[in-house]
Design a protein around this nucleic acid. Structure first.
Lengths: 334, 334
DNA sequence: ACCAAAAATGGCAGCGCTGCCATTCTGTTT
DNA sequence: AAACAGAATGGCAGCGCTGCCATTTTTGGT
């Protein structure tokens, strides 16, 4: 047997107006603190709101007015801490501006991205925030046709549609390689996760390899694991890489999680860091700082990316690309 | 100078109806695959939809019909991986059922929780999902008055308002203590983060202490750090705890992040685990499994909690409490 | 006390859909 | 061929607000 849950009769703006003895528009003005109304009226209205427990209906409000205060996020993953960090930064700004965040997870699947982007547009958001520049033609088409703001996050290596906030992954890869070369490492390997799906990791890898090549120390070997990045995959990847190419003196990981796995592998095998093997990550997670030897990595402005992106949207800024850069953390593992 | 961004004239259902040469209701029926219409009509409508690039307006649809397909999450944090995990589980289910997730972050502040809950209700969601049972009277009042489904997550130690999905934190604390006692530890300490804000951690601690007391090995010492849980705080906390009470033989951490910090501290100081000091965490993160010595901890059903919660909402299940339990991971650190 | 300007307020048409009801087709059945 | 049950379809009110405009009240200056 199915139990029925009735929605209680909801209080409407008209009822508040009646209760306060004023017109609907007046209530609307008071609640939005817009236009003019007297002190006395405001108090009467607020009293009625309080008494009736009125909660404005933003669905109706949005339909009646132009443009909603929803901001849609279409993100690849929630497991990769990068995206919760971006959401965190953005939601802080959005909440204080009366915006509401809605999200969907694509799981790094561009087909899903297209479907989800369409689904989100049905809510007529003020803006859609996406990770990176790689989107299907279909996604691009519906986004452009939607007329809402488009924000591409965490990737600046491409042509922005409207707004873009982040940094260059290509440059991050290059800087990482330069650092390792500067430190004198020459037999350098790479351990990464699925690059076809995570195109930003792919760009870092490209930048890294290009710089190594130019530095006369081309990548010695690589181990790329299927599946998402994880500590366990980092551990496993390094194990395999070293089994195949034992004489490496440094390894670049697709991110800090993977690097931590590598670090654990070294601990377990008694490989001393960095004298026997140097380890370099990407992201600059807190965890890296708490390690016995702080992780050498690149710190990325994840929370700031979310904040700036949100700010651009709420201020309706003109199309632009904001490069927030990144920071090299020398650490003690390379 | 401010640049203006005009929303392009949006295609409406009425325009699709005209283009297809049918009535509005017919288009509506076809798009929702509801009621009856002929094959031929369906094709004509879909062709028009395609041609015009029509995207249904869910704002209007929601206003016109009863009940939205929005599900609101009011979560304490996005830094604590627990909540992204819950969101991940839930969004997978919601997306396939045509629901949309919206969220706000309270930052463990119950005052903010109240404000955000009210803000979310303005979107007339089908359900509101909250962490735990501790809410202000104001929050409870508006939630109950809203008439929408309420789901309390990750905490079963209290009286549910409507739906509740998770497990008992009290029991998790007890089981952890029992395990340590069984292994013969008697000088047991605790390192935790702010318990007043994270009431679930507080409940675990209570359960833990109660069991220790009953086992004739009352908590020897504790170190509670202000601020959120983090690897660094775990490291610091253990350092302080041991400085004060060096003869501990086991330490219970408020979660795996903190425990990992403690682990790092031991590594750095050459404290051997578990012979000199045992370490026990909470959450069962992946990282614990990849450590050279797998972390002894409790694995919690975070993703499952999200999934089940979402399922209950989309199926409009009657009020109930679903206990998903947790799993003791013996590991090698205790 | 009078008038213009400004402030305060109310009325009401939509926003784009859905849900209900009436109507018009079908294809059977007798 | 008439009668009828369904299937297929269209019309239109109304969801709860906002935005526009008209109207009323107040204010300030003379």
């Amino acid at each position: 047997m199915t139990v029925e849950f009735k929605h209680q009769p909801t209080v409407t703006l008209a009822e508040v107006a009646d209760a306060a003895g004023v017109g609907e528009s007046t209530v609307s003005r008071v609640l939005r603190n817009y236009g003019s109304f007297s002190e006395k009226t405001r108090d009467r209205v607020m009293a009625a709101v309080e008494r009736l427990g009125y909660v404005p209906n933003r669905i109706a409000g949005t339909l009646a007015s132009t443009g909603s205060r929803l901001v849609a996020f279409v993100i690849p993953s929630l497991s990769n801490i990068v995206f919760p960090d971006v959401l965190r930064g953005a939601s802080a700004i959005l909440e204080e501006s009366g915006y509401q965040a809605v999200f969907s997870v694509t799981d790094y699947d561009s087909q899903r991205e297209e479907a989800l982007a369409a689904a989100m547009l049905a809510w007529r958001p003020a803006a859609v925030m996406l990770a990176g520049y790689e989107h299907t033609d279909g996604t691009l088409k519906i986004l452009r046709a939607s007329g809402c703001r488009i924000v591409e996050l965490l990737d600046l290596d491409g042509a922005a549609l409207d707004l873009a906030v982040g940094f260059s992954n290509l440059a991050a890869g290059r800087v990482s390689a330069e650092f390792l070369l500067r430190r004198g490492y020459r037999r350098i390997g790479y351990v990464g996760h699925d690059l076809n799906r995570d195109t930003r990791a792919g760009k870092r890898f490209s930048g890294f390899c290009a710089t190594l090549g130019a530095g006369d120390a081309p990548l010695a070997d690589r181990e790329i694991l299927a599946g998402a990045s994880s500590v366990e995959n980092g551990r496993l990847g390094l194990e395999r890489l070293l089994a195949r190419t034992p004489d490496l003196d440094a390894v670049y990981f697709s991110n800090d999680d993977m690097a931590l796995g590598g670090y654990f592998h070294c601990l377990a095998r008694g490989i001393s860091i960095p004298s026997q093997l140097a380890i370099f990550g990407y992201n600059g997670l807190d965890i890296g700082r708490a390690m016995p030897q702080p992780l050498s990595t690149i710190r990325t402005p994840r929370v700031a990316t979310g904040k700036i992106a949100a700010q651009l949207v709420v201020t309706n800024a003109p199309p632009q690309v904001v490069d927030l850069g990144f920071e090299l953390i020398e650490g003690a593992t390379a």
